[in-house]
């Protein structure tokens, strides 16, 4: 069957309509010279950070599955591949937001580990080749965010370390679901609403940028308790200030499940 010109037009209209609807992210995809067929220019690969998009990266194969808590400390810039022995798609720098890089392992096979990446789109993953500069460790912490119940629960070794009523994203700018991880622990220079902010490896699906940032979703405190139990944020999860002391103990790379 040959697609008709009418069908082709419908394709374009549909694609444009989707972007205009706000359902998708219309962030400009910076072309990577190495992403096309043929030769790969690794010198110009994108960096896998919260600021960028990694084209050609495999999606998280099981976004609702539990993670086993294996985290990988990237002590030296690492090449990211689309599959074991596959094509380089990005570099994973040894620093994220001026801190160390820790990412969660979601699968592995001989000599390779698949990790979640902090870049857009949500659920972006990549494969890292085993190397002495990659240090594996275990995190016994799990963070679960129940959007419908407006509840965050932190467990440590299966035991509840804390559970709080929280505020989440609005219907217009919802908190994205799926599994992600704690990307960083930041102490703002001039804290206004929270003395600690924990960016996740996830981004708003409705906002390409926010407040000058790349739309990164985070866990952080909030001084006004009246908002807890409501959908009020632009995607971040606002917690009581007392939760920060628990969050501060959670290793980077630890699993976060948002449902």
């Amino acid at each position: 069957m040959t697609r008709s010109a009418t069908g082709a037009a419908a394709v374009v209209v549909a694609a444009v309509a989707l972007l205009a609807s706000g359902c998708g992210s219309d962030d400009a995809q910076k072309a990577s010279p190495g992403s096309g067929p043929g030769a790969v220019d690794t010198a110009h690969l994108p960096q896998a950070t919260t600021y960028g998009t990694v084209k050609g990266a495999p999606a998280d194969p099981a976004p609702n599955a539990a993670q086993n808590g294996t985290v990988l400390h990237v002590t030296k810039d690492a090449m990211v591949y689309d599959k074991p022995d596959g094509k380089p798609i990005a570099t994973l720098p040894a620093q994220q937001l001026k801190g160390p890089t820790w990412v969660p392992v979601i699968a592995q096979q001989s000599g390779w580990r698949q990790v979640l990446l902090p870049s857009r789109p949500n659920g972006t993953s990549g494969w890292l080749k085993d190397d002495p500069s990659l240090k594996a460790a275990a995190s016994s912490y799990r963070i679960s965010v129940d959007l419908a119940k407006h509840k965050v629960t932190v467990t440590n070794g299966g035991r509840t370390a804390g559970t709080w009523k929280v505020a989440v994203g609005t219907k217009k700018n919802p908190t994205p679901t799926g599994r992600t991880f704690v990307l960083a622990a930041l102490s703002p220079t001039h804290p206004t609403y929270s003395k600690l902010i924990f960016p996740l490896g996830a981004h708003s699906n409705s906002l390409d940028k926010f407040g000058g940032g790349p739309g990164t979703v985070a866990l952080h405190g909030w001084p006004d308790s009246s908002i807890f139990g409501h959908d009020v944020s632009h995607g971040c999860v606002r917690l009581p200030q007392k939760a920060l002391s628990v969050l501060a103990r959670i290793p980077l790379g630890s699993p976060v499940q948002i449902s």
């Binding site: 919260t50 086993n68 294996t70 985290v71 400390h73 937001l97 001026k98 801190g99 820790w102 392992v105 592995q108 580990r113 240090k135 594996a136 460790a137 275990a138 995190s139 016994s140 994203g169 700018n173 704690v182 960083a184 622990a185 930041l186 102490s187 703002p188 220079t189 001039h190 600690l196 902010i197 960016p199 708003s204 906002l207 926010f210 407040g211 000058g212 940032g213 739309g215 990164t216 979703v217 985070a218 952080h220 944020s233 632009h234 995607g235 971040c236 606002r238 501060a248 103990r249 959670i250 290793p251 980077l252 790379g253 630890s254």
Partner: peptide, 22 residues
């Protein structure tokens, strides 16, 4: 995964600003 039983450390907060989705 060969993490050798190593427990990942608690993070040291970095003095840095990132505008997030509030």
């Amino acid at each position: 995964p060969s993490n050798n039983g190593n427990q990942a450390p608690a993070p040291k907060p970095i003095n840095h600003d990132l505008p997030v989705t509030g």
